[in-house]
Design a binder for these strands. Structure first.
Length: 285
DNA sequence: ACCCAGGGTGACG
DNA sequence: CGTCACCATGGG
């Protein structure tokens, strides 16, 4: 996509981007509707995101932040037009694509993605958002924007300093000890950035050594923070889609990954995201 | 009261 | 390797 910066606003054009789909599709939990777009905190900075001519705009930004942070966050170099063409060879994804106009996968911060998807286990999106906001208010650094106070997602050290009781009070339920243990592990040296240089299989195993991270959560983290497009998170919705639309019920992990690889030629994660959104808006049982 | 939500853990074959 | 009870919380 093309980038243009005027004042404190950056415009990206050349490919569709729909903030509503991007932020309501269950990959990110800290952006909410505001005016004609969405507003949230990412990388410790406040950000508005809105549709614009053949693309979208974000503000307030500096040229530095656009170059070093936001281009990457929004994966603006990824060409969804081509990906859609490839995925259209599957008739069922082809039917889902029109419902997903402007969908993009983000590259979110690894630690935030790790913790929020631990919270996502056996939970629903509305409640996940509530829990995350409470945790941020409790231990995230304050961010002031237009006179209002917001909070960054906590650092590993800040989150690790909370007690299980603190997290339970935020509504984390039985996931509280998982969050504590995993936050401590990262604070004490578990390296998340090394995952960028690992292949999908190795990265998945590595993440699953953390408490509260199983196969599905690991796939979400790999897809939504590390851009590992082979990841194929399998939640209750996707299980329904595969059964209802493909008459397919995988017996094990390998059978599912082979299916995804064959059907979606390396873009399983993106196909999955289209199907997830499609299933939800169509309320597929 | 029951069922569900972007599931994982630990125990047991 | 597969199965299964159990886990907390709030909304339908």
């Amino acid at each position: 996509m093309k980038t243009e910066i005027t004042e404190n606003t950056a415009y990206f054009s050349g490919d569709e981007m729909n903030p509503e789909i991007v932020f309501e599709c269950g990959q990110a939990f800290r952006f909410n509707p505001r005016d004609n777009g969405y507003f949230g905190i990412a990388h410790g900075m406040p950000l508005n995101v809105e549709k614009a001519a053949n693309g979208f705009k974000i503000w307030p930004v500096t040229a530095d932040a656009v170059e070093n942070t936001w281009k990457r966050y929004f994966t603006i170099d990824k060409d969804y037009c081509t990906i859609k063409k490839i995925l259209s060879s599957d008739e069922i994804v082809k039917e889902a694509i029109p419902y997903c106009c402007g969908m993009r996968l983000l590259m979110q911060e690894p630690f935030e993605t790790l913790i929020t998807f631990i919270i996502s286990a056996n939970n629903n999106i509305k409640r996940i958002k509530g829990i995350v906001e409470k945790i941020c208010a409790l231990s995230g650094e304050a961010v002031i924007y237009e006179g209002e106070k917001y909070h960054a997602f906590p650092t590993p050290a800040a989150l690790a300093s909370l007690s299980e009781a603190d997290l339970t009070a935020c509504g984390a339920g039985y996931r509280a000890p998982y969050i504590c243990e995993t936050a401590c592990a990262v604070r004490d040296g578990f390296d998340l950035d090394v995952i960028f240089s690992m292949d999908y299989e190795a990265a998945r195993k590595y993440l699953m050594t953390l408490k509260g991270v199983g196969p599905k959560v690991a796939d979400c983290i790999l897809l939504f923070a590390f851009d590992k497009q082979e990841a194929f998170p399998r939640d209750v919705w996707i299980k329904r889609v595969l059964k209802t639309l493909y008459d397919f019920e995988p017996k094990n992990e390998k059978e599912l990954l082979d299916f995804a690889e064959k059907k979606y030629s390396g873009y399983g994660g993106i196909a999955q995201q289209y199907l997830f959104h499609y299933a939800r808006v169509k309320k597929l049982l």
